[in-house]
Amino acid sequence: MVDSVLLVSNTSSTMQIISGLFVSQPISRIVPAQSCTEARRSLLESEFDLVIIDTPLPDEFGDDFALHAAESSGSGVVILVDGIRLEDFGCIFEDSGIFALPKPVSPEVFLQAVKLLIASRRQVQRVEAENRKLLQKIEELRMVSRAKCVLIQTLKMTEAQAHRYIEKQSMDLRLTRTAVAENVLRTYER
C-alpha cells in the first residue's frame, strides 16, 4: 500500500494515533515533523508516498505546505482540518488533488481516504508512464522523419527508399530506428 509516510503534526498524541493506524500496513518508514519548516526539509531530503498534515502547526497553518507538497512532489497529501475551516479550503485542496478530512476523523474514514488517495496516485502514475512512452514515441517519429527528409534532399531518395534505408540499417546494425536516424543526421545534415 504505502512505503513511506511524512507525518506532520505538533502533537505527539496525534502522531501516535496515526502511526498506530499504520501498524497493520507494510510501511518501511514514518518520518515525523513537528512544523512546516521541518516537513519542507524532510520533503527536500527524501521522497514520500504519503504526506499527512495535522493542522494547525506552530509556524504556519499547514495549508501552504499541503499545496507545496502536492505540487512539488509525487506524494499523496492528506490534510486534517477542523470541520468549520474545511469549507474555507475545500475548493483549493480539491483542485490540487489534496484529500482534506475534517477533525476529528474516525480511524475507518481516515484509512479509507488513504486507500483512495493511494489508488488514485497509482492511476496517475500509470497515466504519467504512458505519457512518457507516447512522448518518446513522438520524438522517435520526429527524428526518423527528419532523417528521411535529409536522405531525400541529399541523396535524392524517394520517401519509400528513405524509409526502407532506415529500417534496413536498423535491422542490419541492430540499432533502434532513432539511433540510425541520429547517425543519418550527423552524417548528412549541415
Rank of each mutant, 00 (worst) to 15 (best):
A100Y: 05
L101D: 05
L101C: 08
P102A: 15
K103D: 07
P104C: 07
V105D: 02
V105R: 02
V105G: 02
S106E: 11
S106P: 00
E108G: 02
E108C: 01
L111K: 08
Q112P: 00
A113N: 04
V114W: 04
L116H: 10
L117G: 09
A119C: 06
A119I: 08
A119Q: 12
A119T: 13
S120A: 10
R121K: 15
R122P: 03
Q123F: 09
V124K: 12
V127S: 06
E128K: 14
E128D: 10
A129Q: 07
A129H: 01
R132Y: 14
K133G: 04
K133P: 01
K133L: 15
L134A: 13
L134N: 07
L134S: 08
L134D: 04
L135D: 15
Q136M: 12
Q136K: 15
Q136H: 09
K137T: 11
K137F: 09
I138T: 13
I138S: 11
I138Y: 08
E139T: 10
E140W: 00
R142K: 14
M143F: 00
A147E: 03
A147F: 06
K148W: 01
C149Q: 13
V150I: 15
V150D: 02
V150P: 01
L151T: 01
L155Y: 07
K156Y: 08
K156R: 14
M157D: 01
M157Y: 08
